[in-house]
C-alpha cells in the first residue's frame, strides 16, 4: 500500500495508470459488443461518426468503435501473454545462470548473446510469413516470447550475481537451506521488481512488433488487433477516401497505449533505481 501511494505521487505514474484503466475498460466493453466484429457488412458502410455509430463505420461494414474495443482487448492480451512468457524464460535463465555460474553460465550467456544479435524484425517476418494462416494469438505470443527474453535475462543475471555475494546467502547455505528454496524464497523477491519493470518494457516492444507485422500484412487478418485494424484501413485507402475516423481510431488507441505503458515503465524504474533510467531508455 505504501509503495502504491509513493508511486501515485509521481504524475507520470498517475497519468499512465489512468490511461491504462480507460483502455482496459474499453477492452472489457468488447464483451458486450452488439455486433460480431469478425463479420463484415453488418452496418452501413463508410458512415462518419454519429450517435448510432460512435466512431463511424468502415468500408467493410464494421462499427469502428466496437471493432476498436475488440482490437484493444486483443492487443493488450497479446502483449501481456508474450511478455509473461518471455519473463518466465528470462527469470529461469537469469537465476540459473547467475547463481550456478561456471560452464552453464557461459553456455547460457552465449545463447543469450546469439539471441541479442539476431535481427528480430526480419526473423519474425520470416517466421510469420511461413505460418501466417495458423497464427492464433497464442502462437503469436509464443513467437514473441521466445524472441524477447535475451536482454532482460542479462539484467536479472547481473542482479543475482550481486545477491549471491550477500551475507544472507551464506547464512542460508550454512544453515542447510535447499537450493530451490533459497532461489524461490529469497532471490525471487529481490528480482521481482526488476522483472515487473522489464515486463512493461517488453509489452511496449511486443505491441510495436505486432503492429509492425500486422501493418505489413503478416499476421492472421481475421483476429482484430490494433495493427490489423490499421492494416485494413490502409489497404482500403482510408486516407485517400477521407475516412479519417477509420484510420485515426486505431492510431489514437495505439498512441494512448504506448504512452501509457512508457510512462508507467519510466516512473516504475525511477522508483526502483534512479540509475536504471539510462538502461531503460537505452534498451528500446
Amino acid at each position: 500500500m505504501e509503495t502504491l501511494r509513493a508511486l501515485f505521487r509521481d504524475t507520470r505514474f498517475s497519468i499512465g495508470a489512468a490511461v491504462m484503466v480507460i483502455l482496459i475498460v474499453l477492452a472489457l466493453m468488447s464483451f458486450f459488443s452488439p455486433y460480431d466484429v469478425t463479420v463484415w457488412r453488418l452496418v452501413p458502410r463508410d458512415q462518419p461518426p454519429s450517435p448510432e455509430h460512435l466512431l463511424g463505420t468502415t468500408s467493410l461494414g464494421q462499427d469502428v468503435f466496437w471493432l476498436l474495443t475488440a482490437a484493444i482487448r486483443n492487443s493488450i492480451l497479446l502483449a501481456f501473454c508474450s511478455a509473461a512468457i518471455s519473463r518466465i524464460i528470462a527469470l529461469t535463465v537469469g537465476l540459473v545462470s547467475g547463481y550456478l555460474g561456471g560452464a552453464i553460465d557461459r553456455v547460457l550467456m552465449f545463447v543469450n548473446d546469439g539471441f541479442i544479435v539476431l535481427p528480430q524484425l526480419l526473423i519474425l517476418t520470416l517466421l510469420a510469413l511461413l505460418i501466417q494462416e495458423n497464427l492464433s494469438l497464442l502462437t503469436l505470443a509464443l513467437l514473441f516470447g521466445v524472441m524477447g527474453w535475451a536482454l532482460d535475462a542479462r539484467f536479472i543475471r547481473s542482479q543475482v550475481l550481486s545477491l549471491r555475494e550477500r551475507e544472507f546467502t551464506y547464512t542460508a547455505i550454512l544453515s542447510g537451506t535447499p537450493l530451490y528454496k533459497l532461489i524461490i524464497n529469497e532471490y525471487l523477491l529481490y528480482v521481482m521488481p526488476l522483472t515487473l519493470a522489464t515486463l512493461i518494457g517488453n509489452m511496449i516492444w511486443v505491441t510495436g512488433m505486432e503492429v509492425t507485422l500486422a501493418y505489413l500484412g503478416l499476421t492472421n487478418v481475421s483476429i482484430p488487433t490494433l495493427g490489423i485494424v490499421l492494416h485494413f484501413a490502409l489497404n482500403y485507402q482510408a486516407i485517400l477516401l477521407g475516412l479519417y475516423w477509420w484510420i485515426f481510431a486505431p492510431v489514437g488507441a495505439a498512441v494512448a497505449l504506448f504512452v501509457a505503458l512508457y510512462l508507467l515503465s519510466q516512473s516504475f524504474s525511477d522508483f526502483l533505481d534512479p540509475r536504471a533510467r539510462i538502461q531503460r531508455v537505452g534498451t528500446r
Binding site: 510495436g208 484510420i247 495505439a254 498512441v255 504512452v259 512508457y262 528500446r284
Partner: peptide, 10 residues
C-alpha cells in the same frame, strides 16, 4: 520517444 515509428511516418 515511445511512439511507434510508423505512426509518425503516417
Amino acid at each position: 520517444a515511445p511512439m511507434p515509428y510508423y505512426i509518425i511516418a503516417l
